[in-house]
Each structure stands twice: as structure tokens, then as C-alpha cells.
Design a protein around this nucleic acid. Structure first.
Length: 465
RNA sequence: GGCGUCGUGGCCAAGUGGUAAGGCAAGGGUCUGCAAAACCCUUAUUCAGGGGUUCGAAUCCCCUCGACGCCUCCA
């Protein structure tokens, strides 16, 4: 039984889908006006891991991730660049999709865009007005009427009065109540706009997600996800809109990931402390980013530093050691020892599932994997053959695959490989003649080429590092 | 000011009543010409601090201190 921490109830709950065996999951994507950063990658990875695990447990997952391609920031950036806003956002959509693929994130089953959902958004707003949950202001804006929604604040645990005390709320002249938020914004001169019953304009930020949810997944969904910075106001407003419109409970489980932190602060475009996904991938591999996410709880802040990145890289290396082949000269394990390895594989699998079932406890799941790593390596040291290692290794592959880890050994060009082999042959000649200085010199040379070597009874092994 | 999350060894981190998982780092050992990798051993009488509940608390309650997030665009 899978348990999920639900932001709505602030409790772990048993996971039960609306429809047996099927999961409808909507995750807030990004506003596309700039390069995405590793914080976005974290969020995408968290929900990719959740999706992969749910699929592993037998669910069919409909995974919707939206692109906000109509927004103030996009318009400003497009104006600055003298580019059409939709062309600009399209460019960043393609870039983001490629980056997600590079991170080994499964493509969502649908990726709706605001600009392509306009008729439904307008219809949604009309519906809210009909139900008196919203009103059109004389200037062409349309607002959601917060005081008319008795349940407003249930996700974020806020009271309308408390928020007003914050005094940071801008009182728009056209609003009836300071907490009301825009569903439709009248177009300013020269801005991109769409025709609507209220004149030319464009949607507010929150309504798009309500509309796209309805379009892609229907009135009720199982999982709604995103970063915890979206809890208020975005998700609060989404609930308000969707539930006012349908009269039904919207999402069963609200899942929010913690923020990625750089130097003790949240990484965000407005703070300017950004590491882009592009730059990260130049320095480190996709697995390193994923490992960083796996090492901590998805709900907690993720400390992004050189130190944690190094640790993630080393931890990956450790997982990889278990997947390496048996020693060529191995004499085989006794039946007893071989069956002990098999039972470790089985108990690791169970521990892994138990950990992941408990609100996707990836650090605990990893701990289970390391036990299997140790068992495999010990078996190899004790002379296991490849055939004896293989079942345990394939269990390890299966489980790391569920987490989305690729654990590929690094590759070099075949030209370089020839060079490496020549050097190793030369070194082994030197070693035969006990010319240790020459031998070590060659090893240093190889190291500079990015090659690690290991001498063993079966000869010299090497790999790119 | 309000709402929320949280404070566990050098770093990351699991652990919601029964006596501190795991990874990285560090030290010692086996192996090796030396390394590397693997394996073995060692490293928190203690869980921000102070009270309280309990036979028993990192885990529950109260207070204090501190960090972070949200209350404005934000994954």
C-alpha cells in the first residue's frame, strides 16, 4: 500500500485512485521565457521518479505537464528582444523538452500550452461568472471573487483576514475585494491578446491550469504536483476555480517538492542565483542531478553545493561497481553462498518497495540498494562467475531503473581506446621488467587522459573516469 | 506580523514512543611492486537549548533560540 503525504491534509494518506489502476497526475510546468535552472530540474525529477514508481507498481499514469507560454515576463522579454512572444516561448519550450530528455525524464503524456487552450479558458471563466464565483469589471478584467468561496485557504491554511494583515496585497481599483485575483486581464495597447466576451485580453496565471486539467484529465484528478512555492497563491486559486466550476473535489493528493537551495537560499530567477540545467549538464551527468534528488526527501530543501554534488557522483560510482563483471579467473561460488546472494537480492527488492511505498522515501530505498551492492561485490571477491552475479545484478538494474538512474560507464572514442590499449600494453611490458618508474609514468599519463586502471590477477582493467 | 516546513556525527541524510540506517569524507587493515577498486574494522552514551508527560523520547506537549519557504512573479 502506497502512502503519500498530502499537503491538503498535512498527513500521510493511503493512496487510492479514482479509477482502479489508473493515475491522473498534473504537474505544474514552467513559464518559458528563459533558460530553465536546476531547481526546475529538481521538481521535474521528483515527479518523474514518482511516475516511474507508480508505473512500476502497476499503475497506468497519465502525466500532464503544462507550459505557461502567455505571461507578463514573456511579453517583456519578447519586447526587449523584438521577437514575437509566442515564437520566443516556443523556442524555450523546445529547449526545455530537450533538457528534460537529457535528464532522462520521461516525456509527459501531454504538454498543453496556454496559447492553445484559449477557447476552453474563456468558457471556464464564463462558467465561473454564471455561478457568481467571478465578475467582470468595467475595465475588461475579470476577477475571481474570493469572499464568495467559503473554502478558500484550505490548501495553504490561511485565513483571508490574516493575509490582509500582511499589507502586501495590491488593491486593484477594479477589484471588489483586495484578495480577488484576475482570471482575465484586459489587453494593454500593443500587447498580444485574444478576443473574449470582455474584449481583447489574456488569461490570468491560475486559470490556465484549471482549464488544462479539465481538458486533459477531467473534473477530478488523483495527483496535483509542483514546487512548494506554488502552494499559495497558485494552487490555492486553482482549487478555488476548479471546485467552484465543477462543484466537485478537485485533486485527491497534493504533492509539493521542497526548494533547491544554493548558498542557503532558494534558487530562483528573481534572486539571480541560478545554475542552468544546460550548464549543469556540461559539468556533471544527468545521473548526478537525479542522485542529488534521491539522496534527500523530495519534500525537504535540497542543498546544492560542490560538496553534495561530489558526494552524489561518488555514490553513483559505488552503485556502478556492483554492475561490473566477475573476475575472469573466478572459480565460482558454492551453492550456499550463491543462494545467499539470491536472497539478498530478494530482500533488497522488498526493502526498496517498502521504502518507496512510504511516501517515496528514496534515501531509505538507496540504503537498501547499497546492501545489495555490498553483497554483489563480496560475491565477486569470493570468486562468483558472471552467471552467478547476473541475477542479483539484474535486480539492481531493475531497481535503479525504477529510480531513473542510467549508471552508464563513460565512453571514449575508439581512437582514444586504441591509444589507451597501446599504453597499457607498453606499461605491462615495463611492469614485467619491474621498471616501476616507467610504469607509473604511463599510469599518470592515462590518468590525465581520464582513464583509471586497475591491475588484477587477470590482467589490467581500465575505464574512463 | 500571519501561515508553513525544519534543526540528527566533518558533509548529505533515514528514523513519529523501546533505546541512533545508509552514502560521502577521515583513520587502520586485507589485496597490490606501488596504486586503484573491492572487502573488513573504527568514527554520535547522543539527536539546537531548556522544561514536562512516560517504566521508557531524536520521536509526544510547552517555552526559547536558529534556519528556510510562502504571504508579490517563482519548480
Amino acid at each position: 500500500m502506497i502512502k503519500i503525504y498530502n499537503t491538503l491534509t498535512r498527513k500521510k494518506e493511503e493512496f487510492q485512485t479514482l479509477e482502479p489502476g489508473h493515475v491522473k497526475m498534473y504537474v505544474c510546468g514552467v513559464t518559458v521565457y528563459n533558460d530553465a535552472h536546476v531547481g526546475h530540474a529538481m521538481s521535474a525529477l521528483v515527479f518523474d521518479i514518482i511516475r516511474r514508481y507508480l508505473e512500476y507498481r502497476g499503475y497506468t499514469v497519465k502525466h500532464v505537464m503544462n507550459y505557461t507560454d502567455v505571461d507578463d515576463k514573456i511579453i517583456n522579454r519578447a519586447n526587449a528582444l523584438g521577437e514575437d512572444p509566442l515564437k520566443l516561448s516556443q523556442r524555450y519550450i523546445e529547449a526545455y523538452a530537450n533538457e528534460l530528455a537529457s535528464l532522462n525524464i520521461l516525456p509527459p503524456t501531454a504538454t498543453p500550452q496556454v496559447s492553445k487552450t484559449m477557447p476552453l479558458i474563456i468558457e471556464f471563466i464564463q462558467g465561473l461568472i454564471r455561478k457568481e464565483a467571478a465578475y467582470a469589471a468595467p475595465n475588461g478584467d475579470v476577477y475571481f471573487s474570493v469572499p464568495n468561496d467559503k473554502e478558500y485557504g484550505k490548501l495553504s491554511g490561511r485565513k483571508i483576514e490574516d493575509m490582509q494583515a500582511g499589507a502586501r496585497i495590491e488593491v486593484g481599483e477594479a477589484k471588489n475585494h483586495p484578495m480577488d485575483f484576475a482570471l482575465w486581464k484586459a489587453a494593454k495597447p500593443g500587447e498580444i491578446s485574444w478576443d473574449s466576451p470582455w474584449g481583447k485580453g489574456r488569461p490570468g496565471w491560475h486559470i490556465e491550469c484549471s482549464a488544462m486539467n479539465l481538458a486533459e484529465l477531467g473534473e477530478q484528478i488523483d495527483i496535483h504536483g509542483g514546487g512548494n512555492d506554488l502552494i499559495f497563491p497558485h494552487h490555492e486559486n486553482e482549487i478555488a476555480q476548479s471546485e467552484s466550476y465543477t462543484g466537485k473535489p478537485f485533486a485527491r493528493y497534493w504533492i509539493h517538492n521542497g526548494m533547491l537551495q544554493l548558498g542557503g537560499e532558494k534558487m530562483s530567477k528573481s534572486l539571480g542565483n541560478i545554475v542552468s540545467i544546460k550548464d549543469f549538464l556540461k559539468k556533471r551527468g544527468a545521473d548526478v542531478m537525479r542522485m542529488l534528488v534521491l539522496m534527500g526527501s523530495y519534500r525537504a530543501p535540497l542543498i546544492f553545493s560542490d560538496e553534495t554534488q561530489d558526494a552524489a557522483e561518488k555514490s553513483l560510482e559505488r552503485l556502478k561497481t556492483a554492475l561490473r563483471p566477475a573476475s575472469a579467473s573466478s572459480g565460482g561460488l558454492s551453492a550456499e553462498v550463491a543462494s545467499a546472494l539470491a536472497s539478498q537480492a530478494e530482500s533488497t527488492k522488498q526493502a526498496f518497495i517498502e521504502a518507496m511505498d512510504d511516501d517515496f522515501n528514496t534515501p531509505l530505498a538507496l540504503a537498501a540498494l547499497y546492501e545489495l551492492v555490498k553483497a554483489i561485490n563480496t560475491a565477486r571477491d569470493n570468486g562468483a562467475t558472471d552467471a552467478q552475479l547476473q541475477p542479483a545484478q539484474s535486480t539492481l538494474r531493475e531497481l535503479t531503473g525504477v529510480l531513473g538512474l542510467q549508471l552508464k560507464e563513460k565512453q571514449g572514442s575508439s581512437e582514444d581506446e586504441a591509444k589507451v590499449n597501446a599504453l597499457i600494453t607498453e606499461r605491462n611490458e615495463a611492469r614485467k621488467q619491474k621498471q616501476w618508474a616507467r610504469s607509473d609514468e604511463i599510469r599518470d599519463q592515462l590518468k590525465e587522459m581520464g582513464v583509471t586502471i586497475e591491475d588484477s590477477k587477470d590482467g589490467t582493467k581500465w575505464r574512463w573516469s
